[in-house]
């Protein structure tokens, strides 16, 4: 059992609950999601409660984060994208806290479950579809034909564009899940090597684990950033039909 590097990702029901055939059992992932939510809420509420002109440490951190998200939205969606600020901000902070919480030994990385990341991705993509159809109506289907397509290519471009639309939520979900899982598997394998290698050679993989731990903290930030940045890009595409070349930089 311990030989399997994917063993830490297995989930076992702690409190089995079945609600009308629906399995809503509480397991490690659920508990750690609660912990991430409450940690994020406590940190952000505490940071926002003082509102001093000269910010303290915590307020400074929160201000950097808010400013970062605001810049990201302004660059990808423009001014009208600011109405998505609460959603994008929540997404970023929650994913970041889940990723960072997973870096504590003995804890669980919620974002290493593809069910979790897939729900995030499909919610984002669903919102972008709803917004697109609400703003543009049937004309929103025009995203399936990129501007400047010659007429004879249209029958080929429509299936290709449908696939590239379908690929969006899949790539969002798979990217976050795969990055978090791969990093932790790598750490697990290296630690296993360090323990089984003994003192003579075991120090070598141990040095690697230290380096990769640092890298993983960076990846926790980068993945949270990429997920929310791409969510912004997709939502922005729903706003500006065919317009993404003018503003998406």
């Amino acid at each position: 059992m311990e030989d399997n590097p994917l063993h830490p990702f297995e989930l076992h029901d702690w409190i089995p609950i079945a609600l009308g055939g629906l399995d809503i059992s509480i397991n490690k992932a659920v508990v750690f999601m609660w912990i991430a939510v409450s940690l994020a809420a406590v940190v952000m509420i505490m940071a926002g409660s003082s509102r001093k002109l000269v910010p303290g440490k915590l307020q400074n951190l929160a201000e950097i984060m808010v400013d970062f998200i605001r810049t990201m939205i302004m660059e990808t969606m423009g001014k009208e994208g600011m109405r998505f600020f609460p959603f994008i901000g929540t997404l970023f902070v929650f994913i970041l806290f889940c990723n960072l919480l997973g870096m504590i030994p003995g804890s669980y990385t919620v974002t290493s479950q593809i069910a979790v990341t897939a729900v995030f991705a499909f919610v984002v993509y669903g919102i972008s579809l709803v917004v697109g159809f609400m703003l543009h109506g049937v004309k929103f289907l025009g995203v399936l034909i990129p501007p400047g397509t010659p007429g004879w290519l249209v029958p080929l471009m429509i299936p290709i564009e449908i696939m590239s639309q379908l690929a969006r939520p899949i790539s969002l979900a798979v990217r976050l899940f795969a990055n978090m899982t791969a990093g932790h598997v790598l750490l697990g394998v290296l630690f296993g090597m360090a323990i089984s290698g003994g003192l003579l050679i075991g120090w070598l993989p141990f040095v690697f684990t230290v380096g990769i731990n640092v890298l993983e903290v960076g990846i926790a930030f980068i993945q949270a950033y990429i997920f929310t940045m791409l969510s912004c890009v997709y939502l922005g595409d729903a706003f500006h039909l065919h317009g993404h070349d003018d503003h998406a930089h």
Partner: peptide, 16 residues
């Protein structure tokens, strides 16, 4: 971010 993005975009389109 760009580098990581392109790698998964290739895979995701294949899955789709």
């Amino acid at each position: 971010g760009q580098a990581v993005r392109i790698a998964t975009d290739l895979l995701a389109a294949l899955i789709a």
